[in-house]
């Protein structure tokens, strides 16, 4: 009888599969992704390498000595132990994070703006006691600008009523408000000493959300030539909530990582983070094969460092509040070995 390997499902559940079943899932994962994102399937040699990584009972795995990559983190620390500066310190000193990110618990630029003076003070003090590059991060989070949270009519209410033109106008209005807020926070944080600004989970509210991020990045780059600008995406595919928005003449709705990266680089980012979602009903082998297939064209063409989002529910990591170490390390190693990533 074929040996059983302990592995995980996309929801984190521990299951047993045979090497043949894992291999079949890897093949099915790359095939599904190639078809959906119109990219090439992984090669046979790449699938062989993934089989080696996943057909193992080891609790942990890692890349080879010398193949280490840079580890950046969105939102360092739980904010439950000591102060937020302590969070940054232990990420640097205990977890050996390569870059650190101070964040406001209400992780969006709009609420961060309201407490910016306080955030600046904390950032300034944090810079004194940490050595790793330290930045500030939040989400563009376009939905916060709609009624009842914000001033703009709510397109999620307008669309079901068939009021498409008004819905589009509302999104366009929100884009400008969000971009203004992001630029405001970036300016204030540069004054407080940041090395980089992170626009995390960009595109969460669709193409208008992504456009707000790109517009903000373009303005920040023009004002601060040496500032690091990191963008992390919300999902693999830009949703067309508006449907007609363009940046630099390119329609945003429906963009996959390769084209997301190109536009982000054009706007002026220094680090781009693709996010590829996890299917909870499939094994992690299937999910990782899918993730790598979608991310590969982007990594091959990248002109800026690519830090794949490898966290709960993205990058082949299970959708579970406590992602198991055996799953995260396999997903990370697979991504580094196959994609030759710059970071995670």
């Amino acid at each position: 009888m074929e040996a059983k390997i302990r592995t995980r499902m996309g929801d984190g559940a521990l299951v047993e599969m045979t090497p043949a079943q894992i291999r079949a899932d890897l093949e099915a994962g790359t095939l599904a992704a190639a078809k959906r994102s119109k990219s090439a399937e992984l090669t046979s040699a790449e699938l062989d390498h993934l089989s080696e990584i996943f057909c193992s009972n080891s609790r942990f795995t890692g890349v080879d000595i010398g193949d280490e990559v840079v580890l950046s983190y969105d939102g360092c620390g739980s904010q439950d132990l000591g102060t937020r500066i302590n969070d940054l310190q232990y990420y640097e000193q205990y977890l050996c994070a390569d870059s650190l990110e101070l964040y406001h618990h209400d992780y969006s630029y709009k609420p961060a703006k309201a407490v910016m003076a306080f955030e600046q003070d904390v950032m300034r003090q944090a810079q004194f006691v940490t050595t790793a590059p330290l930045g500030y991060g939040a989400m563009p989070d376009l939905g916060l600008y709609t009624v009842p949270d914000g001033p703009v009519p709510n397109w999620s209410q307008l669309l079901p009523l068939g009021r498409i033109a008004e819905s589009r106008a509302a999104q366009e209005e929100a884009v400008e408000l969000a971009a203004d807020d992001i630029v405001y926070v970036a300016d204030e944080m540069v004054e407080a000493g940041i090395e980089f600004i992170d626009l995390d989970t960009a595109g969460a509210a669709g193409d208008a959300d992504f456009l707000a991020a790109l517009k903000a990045i373009e303005r920040i780059r023009a004002r601060h030539p040496d500032l690091g600008i990191q963008i992390g995406m919300a999902g693999e595919f830009v949703l067309g909530m508006h449907g007609e928005l363009e940046y630099d003449g390119v329609r945003l709705a429906g963009l996959w990582p390769l084209d997301q990266m190109k536009l982000a680089a054009k706007a002026g980012v220094t680090i781009y983070g693709p996010a590829i979602n996890t299917n909870t009903g499939k094994s992690i082998a299937w999910n990782v094969a899918r993730t790598l297939t979608i991310a590969k064209p982007c990594c091959e063409a990248a002109t800026v460092p690519v830090h794949l989002n490898g966290g709960m529910g993205v990058g082949g990591v299970p959708m579970h509040v406590l992602p198991a170490g055996d799953a995260t390390c396999r997903a990370s190693r697979a991504a580094v070995d196959i994609l030759r990533l710059d970071g995670l």
Partner: peptide, 13 residues
Amino acid sequence: MQITRGMRLTEAK
């Protein structure tokens, strides 16, 4: 090097 220069990993190392 990645943050301020957008340098890819091999070049940065």
